[in-house]
Design a binder for these strands. Sequence first.
DNA 1: CTGAAAGCGCTTACAG
DNA 2: CTGAAAGCGCTTACAG
Lengths: 342, 342
Amino acid sequence: MPDAPKTIKDVAAKAGVSIAAVSKVLHGSGTTVRVGTQTAERIQKAAKDLNYRPNRHARSLRLNRSYTVGLIFHGIDNLSKQLFKVHVLDGVHDAVIPAGYDVILLHDLSRGPGYSQFVDGDRFDGLIWARLSSFEQFSGIVQQVKSPMVALSTPSRPGLPLVPKLCCNNRQGMDLLIDHLWKLGHRQYAYLTESYLAEMMEPMDREEGFCEAVGRRGGDFEIVRFNDAASEVYRWMEQGRYPGAVIGWNEDTAGYVLESALKLGIQVPNEISVAGFDSTWYCDTTSPRLTSVRQPILQMATDAAAILLALIEGEAAPVLERSYPCTLDCRESTAEVNPRFI
Amino acid sequence: MPDAPKTIKDVAAKAGVSIAAVSKVLHGSGTTVRVGTQTAERIQKAAKDLNYRPNRHARSLRLNRSYTVGLIFHGIDNLSKQLFKVHVLDGVHDAVIPAGYDVILLHDLSRGPGYSQFVDGDRFDGLIWARLSSFEQFSGIVQQVKSPMVALSTPSRPGLPLVPKLCCNNRQGMDLLIDHLWKLGHRQYAYLTESYLAEMMEPMDREEGFCEAVGRRGGDFEIVRFNDAASEVYRWMEQGRYPGAVIGWNEDTAGYVLESALKLGIQVPNEISVAGFDSTWYCDTTSPRLTSVRQPILQMATDAAAILLALIEGEAAPVLERSYPCTLDCRESTAEVNPRFI
DNA sequence: CTGAAAGCGCTTACAG
DNA sequence: CTGAAAGCGCTTACAG
């Protein structure tokens, strides 16, 4: 720990000017303080010589800006097992770091002690809220949060607060998948989901999309809702009441099906077809490789961050809602229906 | 955006006391301001009624604390493909969030414009630096950085700065692996690494550990150094000059070998054995499942964070260096040597 | 073109 | 037991 950090005073002293001039030259935007070219140069040099960097907290206090963006998920424990979230983090980082902002990852404590920590105006200049839960939660948040926010992976719905919303087109994605399976002859489907998702808007859309896509074609389907898919899928598979096509609400859930099938000696895709949603690289590592609907996660995250930045800078929201088409990555876990399921 | 944020003044006014009293009651630690019980209660109540939360920047400026911890890796692009780093992030989060600190992920720009952003005393209360590069870099950083730091995944070496260092025992881990392979009859080994790792201390240890473990037993080995393993491993495999046992410096690199083998029709583990290092869940998703040395990543990260927190709080460093034993996860990618390699 | 001064919201010796 | 005041390092009207 060499010397005390340099302050604006040190620079002013060294350059023989007032601290106002220094401030103006180094960051000034307004037209309030005018400085001559030579003076400016002298100040620049002094700052450089002293290796001066302005105190972050002082600026923040004065300007009421934190240069920090919050990224909020429902859960952030065990991120390593949730590639979707890590991808979002990657995308947000990409967009936000070059602009000089930090990003802080937060847990969505909505069911807990309230939103206080997000609401604090001084902590974040803006918030990216991923996968908003209920209608009520959304409205509650918007009412309380003081800084700009954008909702990621949150579908648009009539009556929702006027916050920018970005979401992949879950219905279209599901339709793509069902179309694929239907052509392979599948008429019986199961959709595996978890109970905590019941009121989240994107998972709801996805589930409804599934029901519609199968229903419209005249197929049979059931919704299987687990409290903890990781530990319960195996037992469900073991009971043997699965249909010929099993779809996980996301790729992780579909992964549990694959693992269980392997343990139980159920052949995928010969006996049953399995598919998921998201299509990160995880789907390339399963055996068999997992067929999955793909959403453009990285793009969505980057866009969300860019929009948030614009809002922070005071621009009007460029878009209020954006829907991203999904594509289908056909891998190895889906095939023609086994005759036994017809 | 309802009303302006409440300040300490509002609370003082409502409670009919001075702001000094409020400050003391809400956060005061020293014995400087004494407050009566009833006054204290009145202040507490006022603060609660107003839903007061102190301004973060003002406190930070005054106390010269940021309540933020920096986590620095060599690269943070594409985190989703680097589970090791995500695990570290998970561990640091676990330890640091409950203590009221934020964590910010940073790119190690050591080869770039200097450490200025880390050096700024006001930005972080402490730094966790993962996988420090060269000896020189380490010393340079320590000289400049003003806040406490701990070095993660950095082995201890004579002459290194007196910063707490946590590292898995790479040599012991490698020995475990080679022992396993040796017993399976393997006498010829390749170690795949990347050139940017050449001066990082942990990768160096790991590589040396490999050389020693094989050398001591009298085996043959070669070091294969890629610029970009992701794109170059396949070609190397294609040339067919691989030995019977191929070890990646980490699990990702070993994963490339597995993928390449699959494409080239090389049977693992019948024709060659493949192994890696780290042993995250990734190793359970490859086919065949990847044998790997395991390091207790989460524990190490949690410990690093706890030590850093202690340093920040002004305690003396509880340990200066800690070495964590590795274990071996034998999965499916290693087997008896193919006679052709004898 | 330039500087003196107020103030962002807090904490902490200091004086009563 | 309590409060007035200084000051953390900045920025920005305001006056010259």
